[in-house]
Design a protein around this nucleic acid. Sequence first.
DNA 1: GATGAATGAGGGTTCATTCAT
DNA 2: GATGAATGAACCCTCATTCAT
Lengths: 189, 189, 189, 189
Amino acid sequence: MVVNKYDEIARAAIRLFNKKGYHATSVQDIADEVNLQKGSLYHYIASKEELLLQIASRSIHGFSRELESIVNLEESASSRLQKAIHHHFGIVTGDVEMTTVLLRDAFLLSDEPHRIIVAAMDEYLNHWVKIVDDGMNAGEFKEGDPRLAALSILGACNWVYRWYNQNGTKTPKEIADYFCDLHLGGMMR
Amino acid sequence: MVVNKYDEIARAAIRLFNKKGYHATSVQDIADEVNLQKGSLYHYIASKEELLLQIASRSIHGFSRELESIVNLEESASSRLQKAIHHHFGIVTGDVEMTTVLLRDAFLLSDEPHRIIVAAMDEYLNHWVKIVDDGMNAGEFKEGDPRLAALSILGACNWVYRWYNQNGTKTPKEIADYFCDLHLGGMMR
Amino acid sequence: MVVNKYDEIARAAIRLFNKKGYHATSVQDIADEVNLQKGSLYHYIASKEELLLQIASRSIHGFSRELESIVNLEESASSRLQKAIHHHFGIVTGDVEMTTVLLRDAFLLSDEPHRIIVAAMDEYLNHWVKIVDDGMNAGEFKEGDPRLAALSILGACNWVYRWYNQNGTKTPKEIADYFCDLHLGGMMR
Amino acid sequence: MVVNKYDEIARAAIRLFNKKGYHATSVQDIADEVNLQKGSLYHYIASKEELLLQIASRSIHGFSRELESIVNLEESASSRLQKAIHHHFGIVTGDVEMTTVLLRDAFLLSDEPHRIIVAAMDEYLNHWVKIVDDGMNAGEFKEGDPRLAALSILGACNWVYRWYNQNGTKTPKEIADYFCDLHLGGMMR
DNA sequence: GATGAATGAGGGTTCATTCAT
DNA sequence: GATGAATGAACCCTCATTCAT
């Protein structure tokens, strides 16, 4: 199975950034991981920071892509909220390493690239806010501040990257179901 | 106002770590902030890492201290859970900078010191689990996995350091009240 | 004349260590000597200490290599002892700088590398002891303590690095001959 | 038993210099050893280097003092040479630590102080040369180069600081006797 | 005499990046 | 595309020495 070299590098970087953190990972480390000299890496990447930006960018857009369609589904807010939670869980638990880099290391980017990621994350948040807002307006959810409510749910779901363990007794789906209960229960009228 | 020099250094470090991150903050930066030569800092600190450890340690113990008494209160689980949420919010919003260093940068510590912080954070989590477990056993809360439920609440409350803004329209207390509604609502039978 | 860069560095280090001592020689000094930035040195060496270890190691093994064959020659002990003295003199006077680093600076190595050098020097001493012991057993030398006798000769021969001067009136060979007279004279029955 | 503070400091320095070497011993180390703050040390010493100079100076003068009277004794050269050897052994084995500092570390002194020690050591050597020269002129010793002969004996006797071990089976006196045999044997007609 | 805060220069080492081959 | 030598700046930290108290 031939793989794109850039993707191989990005994957190695994700693995290493996740394990040691962005700053503690040297370009040499990444090069070693893909059997290249560190000078050769620069045929594929513009800089170490660019690499982090790409990873974070891919990650947040991965979160956003599907959520957009969920938001626009012709379904009740609670149904869409459940789907959103399952979707989010799917990505976090499906690639904890990448999610960790996004949620923990992306802030290390310098101003301009950092702004790009923050903007994308804000956009992602807004999808959640939209769902919650819809539910409140429809009388499906209790009245409240839709942004705070969304932040509460998203916070709980993001935090998962900190404690999720592939060897746990519960499947991601079971956990997501439980989270749906907890959060929907808090919202519903 | 006479201040302890070590505390002044720690405060400066917290400010800088929060703003730029641990690795991007140089010892020189800290020294500049307290008007000392960087060599002179070493009269007060053993190393940059030790300083981070102290900060993280003080922070997590600050969280733990009061929670212990809350857990042991002779009150209903829901009442204690509300108090725990308010207490947590109080610390996070009272010192977002320090909380950020704890929740975002402490993982940069090397193995041994890292373990110390992780252990303290686990202990803190266990207090939350205890409250939730009490509530479930007493039939006050719906049945469920107390650890997952605690992680859900704590995740939502921790995430606050990411978005809390002193200039927002709502006071920390108001936000905490709302979070109580949301999370208690999800738990209660 | 193309030279290996590592050897060029080692040679520069030997020259500088000899002149100023190990600690008083900075990595910068060595880099200057070979027209490199000090950071660039680290393409060739692992650390300053490693460099010292390599130098000392090469030096002591240079002493040992030939002595081993001398010890095993099918000749009288006195003949072999003379050859050993000449051999030792040849190396000391042929490269006083390197010998100085071995005999004067190698003790600055930290525990583990230091042990390595000490062990190699012990082995070298043992070759001398062997010759002396052979001579005593064969009745060629007066009875006595072979180790002390070897230390006496080796001490006298090592000390040479302290006073030998290329501009002296006597050649190394003449001096070695004289030392043979003195020490053989003290040993022979 | 009240001791002079300066001597206590010098003694501590000797112990530490011997164990770790001059450069690896910090002023703080010395201060710790005498229960003083390092700032306070400077009431007693002018500088770390001055301290090394004092130690080396005391040491070499200790060697010289008695040798001068031995040289001038109205005795045969061989008798005086034996006494010189015993005297040298006595000092080396009586205070290996100080001798080590003299013979190993004194070269670290900067130019001017270094010259002072080298001059004193030269003077000490000259006493030995004088004895040997007397013996040669008197026909007591074989003809030869008195300076080289003295360097041979002195080298052997100096080297002792490298291997002498208080727990050895032989007493210093026994070893010195043996060295007398070996070296006188090489000299005598 | 003793303290300990402060200095300021220098230490060895790491590292992202460049570029001639 | 790949190499690896070289850069140059920055890094954390140490240390002998000074000096006000």
